[in-house]
Design a protein around this nucleic acid. Structure first.
Lengths: 110, 110
DNA sequence: GCTTTATATATAAGATTCTTATATGTAAGG
DNA sequence: CCTTACATATAAGAATCTTATATATAAAGC
């Protein structure tokens, strides 16, 4: 597993990525992210909920209260057009970061 | 450039990477990281110094005061054996994180 | 001589974010 | 019943980051 919780800063990308597939509520997001990364990424729920709130303030995602079949209330989030637009440059940014770190390794080995 | 400052959490890896090449002081570390990553990674010095202090507390690096040729005092840091040992698993961890994020993209596109 | 830029480190204040623990409540399985 | 899974949330404190400021020397330009 990657450290404890999720590596700082990668959480937003992970959330946007799973939401790209379709609307989800917090608990399920955490479950899928953990499952789809085979346990490599683990969300702490207490860190996830405030983060979803912040992302909603920024209008990257939009939440609405739903009542599921079994009567449980839950907050369902979907990507906004703005959030969708952020995804591509955000991935690009992370990709550049990785390359930069690799470059740093190579040079320091030279 | 990657956001402002350096992406959270990657700073430690960057510092250990440049120190692998040989001892350096803070200012020079920041300069080299920026240069070697072609400006992709930028250190804010006010964030760097406390971080070096923390890494020293953890015994990953060791600092000593030096007086350079031109009479300026500066704190020179080198990797400890413990720090060297951390480098490999730390790189592994980041590599796994990247793979996990890619996996998340693929699945969400499926 | 004076000013600016580069070198070099550091701290303070405030904002943000993370961790750990706790609270709440329903539903399903044993 | 009791435990686990579902589902969200907050509080307290720790850790970290940003912006601004302080200090001081040296080199370069004018």
């Amino acid at each position: 597993m990657i450290g404890t919780g999720i590596k700082r800063g990668t959480a937003e990308l992970a959330v946007l990525s799973v939401l790209e597939h379709g609307p989800l509520h917090g608990y399920e997001m955490a479950r899928r992210i953990e499952q789809q990364t085979k346990g490599a990424l683990h969300f702490t729920l207490a860190a996830l909920y405030p983060m979803l709130y912040r992302m909603e303030q920024r209008r990257w995602i939009r939440g609405s209260w739903e009542t599921s079949d079994n009567g449980r209330r839950r907050r369902c989030y979907c990507l906004t057009p703005a959030g969708k637009k952020k995804l591509s440059p955000l991935r690009q940014e992370w990709s550049e970061l990785f390359q930069a770190l690799r470059r740093l390794k190579k040079v320091s080995h030279a």
